[in-house]
Design a protein around this nucleic acid. Structure first.
Length: 550
RNA sequence: UGGGGCGUCGUCUAAUGGUAGGACACCGGGUUUUGGUCCCGGCAGUUGGGGUUCGAGUCCCUACGCCCCAGCCA
């Protein structure tokens, strides 16, 4: 199961650990989201990394909610996060963990810190702490409360817990080094007072642990071996290590890797939240959102995302992945697995004048040319059909393979047709075509060996179902909107194009389905989660590759 | 200018000190009942300068560039 080549640096570290027996050859990872928003594609990288590594080494991976800040966190997010991880295909089994379940333990560990004389209760305000922290170039100033007695610290800390003090009036701080070149080591806050309702512990606590204190303890309590996190935590590692060493408890290894960035995409939860709250998108799962739920609604498959993460790799340098690579990954997956259907987005009526009136027939259509086991279906054909507006041109350029006056094309799976008359409205707009068909070309093959260059998709006007089809473009026009001064400025005003008069083949109205189809020649589409029988809505996940240059 | 990281094709990512490879993108050509897929081919890279070595992307020195850190957020 374990590959021997092209191992990324984390796998190499684990291989080394297993050779030296550092963690008794165990591998236990965790995915530790804070439930303060929906998961996005960047989280998916962390999810895949952690769960895949556990699986590869025969270890385990916990899903752990890092719910140490009641102000930002909500139940809805713990629900959606579980749904998204599950959808990606990962199973945490019975290892659903919450940092809040360890609050009692964390509190006693804090008492232990106080007992060891390396933590103190500080009365400085947030502003005063900021003032005395120093700068990047100058050391900070020690708190006047730094040398309180252990007894006093203990008493005060207990009273903090018991609700005697107001928010912000006191903190518990670690006693490390106010002159430390690493800002994180300048007597960091361990606990703060927050009289707030927690979504799980309700009103039990009014003191809450800070990330650096909590996270290492969570890892330690759960027996995590390799604690994977992103690069910005690199200079938190000394503190992570310091806490665990002071306590003398089991000590996991933190390893940092570069988070995923996508071109033309924002990955900041804060900014995504702003899009939702300002109504710029249709919720967290808007198909244009880089959230996992957005990609799901857009028509992405879990497999395509996992394959993408495999290709992206794991390293330590900052990166911006080309979103085209994600799209390519989807196409590759769906080309092999999705059934084809006929749909016309911008219908142009074609009357086949030599086809019998009041008559119709069925033609046989392969569901997937890449997969014979997908079988075939029957599609109704009749005298009046719709083709795509852009598949006809009255005055075509040189290499136009589609329909034009006098030219012959194939209607896929049906017949060859030739265009004889162009009907226009009062504005000169083409509204209808009169064509003739060759009845000896049924199925799309000529009996005399003559060939046509163009093959068009179509639907029978008599049998077609109306639907709305939504085409999406990137939400942002800037390659890296996250680094722009104002990300809202580069919002693409044309990121959604809703087409209301589309005609789709009847089979698309019949079943309920949640897997994408390929609409012949157009791309991959999925029925929108809010679609109904009365108003059918399809989302285009991604267009087919188009190398035709007009 | 303190500390922590990172520099390989346009974008990602590989390479016990031994021919710099792959993917995406892009550009050609072939096949094709999707201008899709598939197949074949092409383009293109080690941040600069020194040093060690028979040999350096890899080791050493140096310069430069980029990212992160001064929340009682995570």
């Amino acid at each position: 199961m374990i590959k021997t080549t092209n191992r990324h640096f984390i796998q190499k570290i684990i291989d080394d650990d297993n050779r030296s027996g550092k963690f008794n050859n165990k591998v236990h990872t965790r995915f530790p989201p804070e439930p303060n928003g929906y998961l996005h594609i960047g989280h998916a990288k962390a999810i895949c990394l952690n769960f895949n590594i556990a699986e590869e080494y025969g270890g385990k991976c916990n899903l752990r909610f890092d719910d140490t800040n009641p102000i930002a966190e909500e139940e809805e997010f713990v629900r959606s996060i579980q749904e998204d991880v599950k959808w990606l295909g990962y199973d945490w089994k019975d290892r659903l963990c919450f940092a809040s379940d360890y609050f009692d333990q964390m509190f006693s560990f804090a008492l232990q810190l106080i007992d060891s004389g390396v933590a103190f209760v500080c009365d400085l305000s947030a502003e005063e702490i900021k003032q005395t922290r120093g700068t990047l170039n100058e050391p900070g100033i020690e708190s006047p409360f730094r040398n309180r007695s252990i007894e006093e610290n203990k008493d005060l800390f207990l009273r903090m817990r018991d609700g005697e003090f107001n928010n912000g009036s006191k903190t518990l701080r670690a006693k490390i080094d106010m002159g430390h070149p690493n800002m994180n080591m300048r007597d960091p806050v361990v606990y703060r007072i927050l009289h707030a309702h927690h979504h799980r512990t309700k009103d039990k606590w009014c003191v809450y642990p800070m990330y650096d204190w909590a996270h290492g303890l969570e890892d330690s309590i759960e027996g995590i071996t390799h604690s994977l996190c992103s690069l910005e935590f690199e200079d938190h590692r000394p503190l992570y290590d310091w806490y665990l060493e002071q306590l003398g408890v089991y000590h996991p290894q933190q390893i940092e890797f570069a988070r995923l960035n996508l071109s033309y995409t924002i990955m900041s939860k804060r900014k995504l939240k702003k899009l939702v709250e300002n109504g710029l998108v249709d919720g967290w799962d808007d198909p244009r959102m880089p959230t996992i739920s957005g990609f799901r609604r857009r028509g992405y498959t879990p497999q395509s995302i996992k394959n993408f993460m495999e290709e992206v790799g794991v390293a330590k340098r900052d990166n911006v992945m080309d979103v085209a690579k994600l799209e390519s990954s989807l196409r590759t997956d769906l080309n092999k697995r999705s059934d084809r259907r006929m749909a016309v987005l911008n219908p142009l009526k074609v009357v086949i004048t030599n086809y019998p009136k009041d008559s119709d027939e069925l033609v046989r259509a392969k569901n997937n040319p890449e997969d014979d086991s997908a079988g075939a279906r029957n599609i109704p054909f009749s005298r009046e059909i719709y083709i795509e507006k852009e598949d006809f041109m009255e005055n075509p350029p040189k290499k136009y393979f589609r329909l034009s006056p006098g030219s012959e094309v194939r209607l896929k799976f049906a017949y060859f047709i030739k265009c004889n008359d162009v009907i226009k409205d009062e504005y000169g707009e083409v509204v209808e075509l009169h064509c003739t068909y060759d009845k000896n070309t049924k199925g799309g093959k000529s009996s005399d060996g003559r060939k046509v260059k163009g093959t068009l998709h179509w639907v029978s006007a008599l049998h077609a179902i109306s639907a709305e089809v939504r085409l999406y473009d990137r939400l942002f026009q800037s390659v890296n909107p996250d680094t722009d001064s104002d990300f809202l400025e580069s919002i693409n005003p044309n990121s959604l194009e809703a087409l209301h008069d589309c005609k789709v083949e009847p089979s698309l109205g019949e079943e309920t389905f949640d897997f994408p189809f390929q609409f012949e020649r157009l791309g991959y589409f999925i029925r929108d989660s809010k679609s109904s029988k009365e108003s059918l809505v399809f989302n285009r996940a991604v267009a087919l590759r188009d190398t035709w240059k007009q």
